[in-house]
Write a protein that binds this DNA or RNA. Structure first.
Lengths: 337, 337
DNA sequence: GTGAGAAATGTAATGCTTTACATTTGCGGA
DNA sequence: TCCGCAAATGTAAAGCATTACATTTCTCAC
């Protein structure tokens, strides 16, 4: 069942069938109709591989994430896949588990498959990967790699702006001692968030003590550990901002285990706004980071560069505060001293 | 940079290069080494499309899920992708959003791409899809479609066994009135769970009243609603089993909002064992359904049928109880009357 | 009705690899 | 040394669609 069969049935050449298939406007409508009828009758579907081989276009986009089990990524994938499907494009993907080797292998595999574009939603990007991408002509978009913004398309999150909003929110509630639970320093997205938090504190003219910064791991454990530390401190912060929601939820959990009330004793703010935030008790105030927006921008960033020269471009997404029940007025005596 | 360049460099024909590439044993080791050297030197990568076009094998597997945002599915995908990667196979996927049209379109797209195998992890499967698959020769594996088990490979969950375990657990704790929050009747996986629960109740010789069965929707809302109903009943069940974790968590949430203590007033059991179960308070007792196992079996089900005739085959996965904090002894007076 | 130019369609090369079949090489035995 | 057979390698077709270029068919003006 190939294009020749269709051509014969419609009484035209394969070239004409191909033109109809590819919506070329150089075919008379009456001919096109005949061809379409033949296609329908034979239930013909063009062979994707032959198509890609010849045309150099695969109609396939690649997406790479660091951890598909982290609810952040499925949201990204869903929107990306949904847009692709709407455009008749398929998506193939790879999961790196934060592992650089797997990222490199994944990028290589996808490139070899001749994808038309690649979205890399991982925080760690080795130079080997960069070089590989440099040597290819496939449009690529990165998430949160400002350092690459001169060379590749990038979607970036304005962390500072988000944290400023969080801090202002806490300040309005009377908090002056705000701590931070960071993510693993090895994770570049985490260290970016940490830096952004420091910058936000500074720009809000707040005081920040070193021991108000807790090392976490972007998982429940990190939050749990931070909570234990915090509740045993003599001069503890009255509010905590976390590098991500998982951390905040771990914190919440331990606080409740220790019989500490949130937000009465400590106000808590997460980051990302995973759906769990509404489920935990108290519901978590957090900074909403729109996966839908990130994915949409990423999609169009590579989509628009189809064919054209790849031009670097940076697109900035701003998180915004979603106040829920885990933040409240600062307890008396915890104000500025 | 094609295979001819490599052949020339190595002083052999393209056929020999191809044989080396495909690990054929018909090449003398010394020749193979020369070819490999040429490949490395030229940094040659075979063209995937040409390969697939000619050989009919794409080294690509498809995976279709109903809702990638439901944490159940990323777990499945992760394991599936991880196994595929280990075997040097790529994965492409589609998300249906429980929509039959999208499922059909997705299956069609994937088949056209010439995938070597397809795992369909959705509950709704229309006859159109079945027919499409019937007319193709691609090995397919379904999740929980016992009715298709005669024709396709299937991985099935032994729901009854899981529910029996749950009911036995509750009985040991002194519960005799056990209710159930079902999923949406339109969702076949939900109605299967419902039927299995009824069967389990019967096989445990328990009594079940009609109004102990609540209609849910497999989301938080369903559980919330059920909790409100239950706590306003005169003769309420002392324990509730839910069709999935999300439902149970919604229940938990509302119970806590209403000031009802779990498990003191009502014991609660979920289904699936999403990671959130450990996070909510009290931690949710649930039936663990191993996504890893399901994905692994699905992968090998289609992998083993490569080339061979597609033989139907059913593989059964059993859920098991994970006791946590949401189940406890039946309150006095709630025993058998 | 004719011719020029535009529009439509056709021809055939091309993309790159795999593989059936043909040929050469190598080896062991006589 | 020579033969025969197995092993290794080579030749060339095939897989299917796209597309540059060539050819035919229209259309319209005169």
């Amino acid at each position: 069942m190939d294009i020749l069969a269709v051509a014969r049935k419609a009484g035209v050449s394969t070239a004409t069938v191909s033109r109809v298939l590819n919506a070329s406007d150089k075919v008379r409508e009456s001919t096109a109709a005949r061809v379409r009828a033949a296609i329908a009758e034979l239930n013909y579907r063009p062979n994707t591989n032959a198509r890609s081989l010849r045309s150099g276009r695969s109609n396939l986009l690649g997406i790479i994430v660091s951890d598909i089990r982290n609810p952040f990524f499925p949201d990204l994938i869903e929107q990306f896949e949904s847009l692709a499907t709407q455009h008749g494009i398929d998506v193939t993907f790879a999961n790196t588990g934060y592992n650089e080797q797997r990222l490199l292998a994944g990028v290589r595999r996808l490139l070899e498959r001749g994808i038309d574009g690649l979205a890399i939603f991982t925080s760690e990007v080795s130079t080997a990967v960069i070089e590989l991408l440099r040597s290819s002509t496939v449009p690529v978009v990165f998430l949160n790699q400002p350092s690459l913004a001169g060379e590749f398309r990038t979607v970036s999150v304005d962390y500072v702006r988000g944290f400023v909003e969080a801090i202002e929110h806490l300040r309005m509630l009377g908090h002056h001692r705000i701590g931070f639970v960071a993510g693993p320093p090895t994770l570049s997205s985490a260290s970016r968030r940490r830096k952004a938090f420091l910058a936000a504190v500074k720009s809000c003219h707040m005081v920040l003590k070193d021991d108000w910064i807790f090392e976490g791991d972007h998982r429940l454990t990190g939050g749990r550990f931070a909570a234990e530390r915090l509740f045993s401190m003599r001069q503890a912060p009255s509010a905590i901002v976390c590098s991500n929601d998982m951390t905040a939820i771990g914190f919440l959990e331990t606080a409740s285990r220790l019989g500490r009330r949130i937000p009465d004793e400590v106000s808590l703010i997460g980051f990302d706004d995973l759906f769990i935030c509404e489920v935990v008790h108290p519901a978590l105030t957090t900074l909403h980071l729109s996966r839908k927006e990130i994915a949409t921008r990423a999609f169009y960033a590579i989509q628009s560069s189809r064919g054209e020269a790849i031009e670097a471009q940076i697109s900035v997404v701003s998180p915004y505060l979603v106040p829920r029940a885990s933040t409240g007025p600062a307890a008396k005596g915890s104000g500025r001293r």
